[in-house]
Simulated scan of single mutants.
Amino acid sequence: MANRRNLKKNVNYISDLVAGLCIVESMNAKEENREAISQLFLQIVNLRRDIISRISHTEPGSVKVFYKKLKSDFNTEVEAIFKKLEELGK
């Protein structure tokens, strides 16, 4: 139980960090990029909600495979958001 709690805390921390970066970038961005950055903000909020719900409802049986897939899904989504933020920041 403590490991799931720590995993949820880590997901919250990373998603809060990315959301904060979205807010900072939107303040410094051009007018035409602000809508795209707000979409990225919504994307990270939805990703956080999805990952937390998946952690709360672990599939019985193949727990190790479930958490490996969860980790890889979260990492790929966060990396994609960072890449989009970098593109919009240029």
Rank of each mutant, 00 (worst) to 15 (best):
M1G: 15
M1F: 13
A2P: 11
R4M: 10
R5K: 12
R5E: 15
R5W: 15
N6Q: 14
N6Y: 13
K8Y: 05
I14R: 14
I14H: 09
L17G: 11
A19R: 12
A19W: 07
L21Q: 14
C22L: 03
I23V: 15
I23Y: 15
I23A: 14
S26M: 08
E31N: 09
E31P: 08
A36K: 08
S38R: 06
L42Q: 13
Q43R: 12
I44T: 01
I44G: 01
V45L: 12
L47H: 06
I51Q: 02
I52G: 09
I52F: 12
I52S: 10
S53V: 06
I55L: 04
S56F: 06
H57Y: 10
G61Y: 02
G61D: 00
S62R: 13
K64H: 14
V65N: 15
K69G: 04
L70A: 00
D73K: 00
F74W: 03
F74N: 01
N75R: 10
T76E: 12
T76I: 11
V78R: 04
E79Q: 11
A80P: 02
I81W: 05
F82A: 11
F82R: 12
K83E: 15
E86P: 01
E87C: 02
L88G: 01
G89M: 05
K90I: 10
